[in-house]
Nucleic acid binder design. Structure first.
Lengths: 245, 245
DNA sequence: TCCAAATGTCTATTGATATAGACAACTATA
DNA sequence: TATAGTTGTCTATATCAATAGACATTTGGA
């Protein structure tokens, strides 16, 4: 519980938002698991050193997100807490990696575009700048809650029709298989964190100030030839990455 | 440059702070590298759709952080942009990993405590709960800028005196070597992201709302016996992790 | 030397944020 | 069926955040 009662003033971040962020994280970390409830508003106000109304603003925001539900006379109940574990290995696959952590996994194809590779994409895929690549915009959900949004690039020639295959199977692995690539390997992953921009806020159903874990990944076939480069943006309060060496 | 002009109102995060965060990130991503300057205030105000005074608040905050410096009549110069790359492999070592990305690396020992292992720490280190462990609190700096703050636990019996050794060498690797452990391996790393709490804000010289990349790591000796468990908190706008498989 | 372009400063006004206090409404339980 | 404990609602006030406009000051180049 220590470290929870820390908020700062005049920083451009409203107190109610700082408090909402702290409570959301505390819930995710399993504090309050014994009671299944958030402490009373008066107690939280005392802990954070703010007025009860300020705490109420924070709880209202969390209720809006569906994380808690206030019941007059009883208290504020915790509705949902989840943090998926996403292992990163040579054999990283999104759907299989989530496995039984969610009952229902969905992968939606938002957009498919054939375009010329930028310098960066060409470098990652080992192509000449300006070579044709297929770009897929995808959204992944676990139990109907958006988990990540990804942009993926594929060499156009080798993987023509991957968009259609992905839409059908809702899986990169199966789409690759349909196009004759039976196996592939995660070569590199770069992880950073940043604030969500407006588009991500909307697609991932987040609130401003929310954090994204960003994974830039390159997959190769068994011969080491790049087959996919992707930039995935994960809602940081819903996932963690695990790297096993 | 796309996606830069996105701010939201009435979210508990002041516009000037949202704008400051976006500009800081844009600088880190190498936008503005051609000129070495941030666009004029009037241009930024137009891009973000806010008043020029609001942009000035954002730039004032960045100037306070030492990232930009405004010069009347000329413009706003970029003073500093850095994002260290931190590779995560079986042979992950902090100091060697940063390598030549910084001229000067420092590792400070803030605190050393011998305590009983919590259930979680005992599990990670393969000890019985309540076994004696040594906890080190450390702060790492690159070119005098704090990069990460870490809490590490070691089996007390095997690594008595590691605090002193670390203080002397400013390196876990060298401290291990002095205590007879010539080599070790990074077994697992868990990566999450969260908002910085007050203690981290102070130690890492961040502003509220700042993001941390959090790496929970376990190192073993060559026989697979755990030798260290650590929780490191990195300033997200100063680092990225790279996982090579 | 002048002028365009940029940052610096000031005043005024509006809306969002935070505090303060009082009381109503509801729940569970003694 | 009281009553303690909790959330819900209302009013009032002070401070911060954002907009708006005007003008000063500095720089660099035509």
């Amino acid at each position: 519980m220590a470290g929870l009662n820390q908020v700062q003033r005049q920083t451009g971040v409203a107190l109610w938002r700082q408090i909402a962020d702290r409570i959301r994280e505390a819930i995710g970390n399993g504090a309050y698991d014994e009671t299944g409830m958030v402490p009373p508003e008066t107690v939280l106000a005392l802990q954070f050193g703010v007025n009860r109304h300020t705490v109420r603003s924070a709880l209202a925001a969390l209720a809006q997100e569906g994380i808690v539900r206030a019941v007059q006379g009883r208290g504020t109940l915790i509705e949902r807490k989840e943090r998926l574990n996403f292992p990163i290995t040579r054999r990283t696959r999104f759907t299989a990696g989530i496995g039984d952590q969610a009952r229902e996994m969905r992968s939606l194809l938002l957009d498919e575009v054939t375009e010329e590779a930028s310098a960066e994409i060409a470098r990652w895929l080992g192509l000449k700048p300006g070579a044709q690549v297929i770009r897929l915009e995808t959204l992944r959900e676990a139990d109907r809650r958006p988990v990540s949004k990804a942009t993926s690039w594929f060499p156009s020639e080798r993987f023509a029709g991957i968009g259609e295959a992905y839409r059908k199977h809702e899986s990169i692995t199966k789409a690759f298989a349909e196009l004759g690539l039976a196996d592939y390997i995660r070569a590199t992953t770069e992880v950073t964190a940043a604030h969500a921009d407006t588009a991500d806020l909307a697609d991932l159903e987040l609130t401003p100030g929310a954090i994204l874990l960003i994974a830039k990944a390159m997959n190769t076939d068994l011969d080491g030839v790049p087959v996919q480069y992707s930039i995935s943006r994960f809602a940081a309060d819903r996932v963690q990455f695990t790297i096993e060496n």
